[in-house]
């Protein structure tokens, strides 16, 4: 489980907790729902700020995903050492690392407390 701000929500993620309205009385979206763009948009419109999602990827899967991205980029950029290409390469490497670490379970441990307040 991980508590994420709604801006980070993507279709395909699964809700691990019910989503309540502002007052906390009305369930807007049930636990187990698979998010779609339309649902996310609706939650945005209703002012929801955070949601708790199921972590489908294991640490190992996450590692593999990052490793694959890194390998792809290294391969595609090999021999392309100009200033501009190097800058693009570094920016993408950083971007994928950050993106996958946000939802990685190792971060989730630190997020554990926050998840309850979500």
């Amino acid at each position: 489980m991980a508590c994420i701000p709604l801006e980070k929500a993507k279709s395909g993620m699964k809700l691990a907790e019910d989503v309540y309205n502002h007052g906390g009385k009305v369930v807007l979206c049930k636990k187990g729902t698979l998010l779609t763009e339309a649902i996310i948009q609706r939650l945005v419109n209703m002012g929801v700020e955070k949601i708790v999602i199921e972590e489908s990827l294991s640490t190992q899967e996450m590692r593999q995903l990052i490793d694959e991205k890194m390998r792809l980029i290294e391969e595609a950029f090999s021999g392309k050492d100009s200033e501009c290409m190097q800058m693009l390469k570094e920016a993408f490497l950083d971007f994928w690392r950050n993106k996958f670490e946000i939802s990685s379970p190792s971060i989730e441990v630190q997020d554990g407390k926050e998840a309850e307040a979500c």
């Binding site: 595609a76 950029f77 392309k80 100009s82 200033e83 501009c84 290409m85 693009l88």
Partner: peptide
């Protein structure tokens, strides 16, 4: 995939 070159 072979990337196009972007000039400096």
């Amino acid at each position: 995939q072979c990337l196009p070159i972007v000039e400096d």
